[in-house]
Design a protein around this nucleic acid. Sequence first.
RNA 1: GCGCUCAUCGUCUAGCCUGGUCCAGGACACCGCCCUUUCACGGCGGCGACAGGGGUUCGAAUCCCCUUGGGCGUACCA
Length: 401
Amino acid sequence: MSDLRVRFAPSPTGYLHIGGARTALFNYLLARKEQGTYILRIEDTDVERSTQQSVDAILQAMDWLGLSYDEGPFYQSERFDLYKQKVQQLLDEGKAYKCYCSAETLTQKREAAMERGDKPQYDETCRDLEPRDDDSPYVIRFKSQRAGATSFNDRIKGTITFENTELDDMIIQRTDGTPTYNFVVVIDDAEMGLTQVIRGDDHVNNTPRQIQIYNALGYALPEFAHVPMILGADKKRLSKRHGATSVMDYRVMGYLPEAMVNYLVRLGWSCGDEEIFSMDDLIEKFSLDNVGRSAGVFNPEKLLWLNEHYIKTGDPQRLGELLKEYLEKDGVQITADIDCAEVVKSLQDRSKTMVEMAEKAAFYFSDSLVFDGKAQAKFITAVLGRERCLARLDHAITLAQ
RNA sequence: GCGCUCAUCGUCUAGCCUGGUCCAGGACACCGCCCUUUCACGGCGGCGACAGGGGUUCGAAUCCCCUUGGGCGUACCA
């Protein structure tokens, strides 16, 4: 056991998507390789958008991929007391302040600034207000450093620096009293003792703000590692427009979890010329050192190829059990006299997905034979004679049995 | 717009840090041939890239600068 501690922290506002799964995988791999601790934390501070169904869907997907965690799942919604306490601490120390600007005014000002071509930043109207007991609605903002710059050494991207003037006073507590992401993520990452924070590229911009909060709260900084985004074929951020982006959709489409894991890990990470990796290989070989810096395009065809590979080389017994599930979904009556492992063996080389295998396997469980149109036209010819051909077939089947 | 960031075949990538062994290697896809009286599998081969321009150097995919293009961010979302 090493003292490495990492986490996967999805927000339960939908299913587990391809990008999230890869982040989860990278974290998992590193934790297992270094024999560290893998933590799962549910980021549900947005009460409006978070649902239990989403949590379940994410948990199920992680389980399917084989990504087990050591601690958690922790729910941020159950830790509001802790966050409140930290907000109060910042307030007491003069590192945060109440802001009475309404959301409407803010939106107006932001739009006006954009029209003028200025930066859409908070104008600090309430930053230096005298503390007062006012029960009109307010949010709490973090008083950011105005001078200097904030920089950090990203494990994947190297040194990244932001001028502090780029960072405005962000909201850490909403009008309704709930805390916001950029604030709680720091508290939890720090309180949970994370040694590295491995997350998507889209968080690079948040990092300097978070660092200021680490500093304000007196926490030690973890190491940051930002992995590049996954894009669609049009080089836009991967979304539903590009097809299935939910990990579990791929299970429905007949993909094996090892194919998904293998595909995902190679998108952004490499190990020389190797393409095929089992989970054990990965735990042995994975390293942040070989993670690339540029965004990658999701390529369903390569995923399909990997799936084909794992079906071809998979254990017939196991695939047989799996096949039954797909067969049942197709409404096929499974009879006990047929050994599914044998069925799998006959179909492994000709199926790219389990769905395809189920389609091809259906005839084993059917009483009536339906011939393939093209094959029938080609082989059951006048020359050979339909009757003789069927007789031969019948003979062949008898022999096979 | 501004900020951050990225840049090798259509796609995923090796090589870049520690310049020469790279007229750039592997994989997916695609094309062709072989195997096969089915469908596939498989084998062999082909097509195909250092974004552009300047430097530095005897020598640059590798180092520096600029340009161009892409991504991300710019929320009382995460």
